[in-house]
Write a protein that binds this DNA or RNA. Sequence first.
RNA 1: GGUUCCAUCGUCUAGGGGUUAGGACGGGAGAUUCUCAGUCUCUAAACAGGGGUUCGAUUCCCCUUGGAACUACCA
Length: 497
Amino acid sequence: MEVRVRYAPSPTGLQHIGGVRTALFNYFFARAKGGKFILRVEDTDRERYSDQSLQDLYDTLDWLGIKWDEGPVVGGPHTPYVQSERLEIYQEYAKKLVDMGKAYYCYCTPERLDALRKKQEEEKSPVQGYDRHCRNLTQEERAELEKQGIRPVIRLKVPTEGSTTFHDILMGDITRENKDISPDPVLLKSDGYPTYHLANVIDDHMMGITHIMRAQEWIPSGPLHIILYQAFGWEPPVYCHLPMVMGKEVDPVTGEVHFAKLSKRHGSTSVRDFRAKGYLPEALLNYVSLVGWSYDGEKEFFTREELEKVFNLESINKAPGVFDYQKLDWFNGQYIRMKTDEELADLLMPYMVNAGILKETEKQRLLAFVPGVKDRLVLLSDVVTMCEFLKDQGKPAVQLLIPKKMDAQSTLKALELTYAFVKKGFAEKMTDQQLQDGLCALAAENGFKNAAMFNPLRTAVTGLQVSPPPFSCIRLMGEQEAFRRIERAIDVLKEEA
RNA sequence: GGUUCCAUCGUCUAGGGGUUAGGACGGGAGAUUCUCAGUCUCUAAACAGGGGUUCGAUUCCCCUUGGAACUACCA
């Protein structure tokens, strides 16, 4: 049987790491099995829905290179794939359940439910949730409430006795006493929209989903969904609950470490933010795939294409995993280093333009600068701070120009020699490597250490003591400006000497 | 509180009845180097505790402890 899996997010916020991990695992599994990956938009929460969230979903999957076989935009045999366009289906099936005596209309007001909840909390009642007030209303009582114009919800009749078990490929059998299952959850809201439970079960069935891969936070509702499948007389799909992605937080006061669902963490975990900071899609995809899944414990670099072949359910971990920002950073640096200068320049350009450092047309300058920063970048956005030196700080302080164990006199000599050489080198269109080798040779000839040549040059050109390689900096800022700054530094040294 | 799930270095993980418990990030040390990075080498660091089962358990079972999730007309 063909594997059919889906990613079914709710467009109520930006796509975050946890969601993307679920999407990825579903997608890879489908590809590895030669099956179909379906995208379904679960936009049944009208209060929290936003168009931007939906757009963000598409943008994110697109950025990661994840294409869906069926779903919105691309269509498919089970159109529509957007739940708000399938309302009649849910309503019809909900009514069917009522007709079969497996669900019922409930007229309880939000106020009554609130009061109930509060009371249960105050009394520390071991029983929580709906009190099944409307479960056994008579025809007359219902007619009366209808007359009052109350729009009812439809609730599922959860059996009060016995237990329900479902099988999870990772976790094994999971059983819950029916009395512990959410008492008669709402299936159809008073606005006519379905809740997750209803819509999810109906769509998964109608769309022929074979494997449900979702986060472990859904385990508690597993039995509930089984009851729904049974009520409809449908065969439930295979379940595979994915370990959660956790965030680590250290209390700044007590120093206590604590963990929580990453999506509940403060701070940015949206993919859009990662993207904006300059994480590469291949790095994020690679790292995220390794939270909760591993290949052999050794190999950890995977392209998307490799994962599409090699991903398997058996190697998914059961325990939740902590999202490690440092390791992600490391991956990002590694992937940056794998880029060609040309590719990296293209990736960096938007950051330069955005920061007002370069114009779109100045790619050649950036290209000349790239070799100097490639090994230094962790995030693409780091390039902006690495261009700090472009700002003219004015005359450099003498102490900054003079390297350790040298004086103004010798530094002056070194910088003059360096300047003469650099000027000539640029005039002769030497490469960075030639310039570097040449300057080292010059240092040796004159009994200077390399640092005696490079450090004053760096400070003269950048005004800083830490910077990308001087020649790279010169290429980015332009020879004219660089030479002006060197001459100015020479003047400073002359005054001192 | 109730219910359910989980448990190998700080983190992600490999392994599995008999191993020097392996790798990676991060940490530490060193090398390279014009600064910072990067790169290379070395290194410290783990089977939560207690009971079983067994000739032998980190591995299988139970309990404890710890962590997490759920407990909405949100998904």
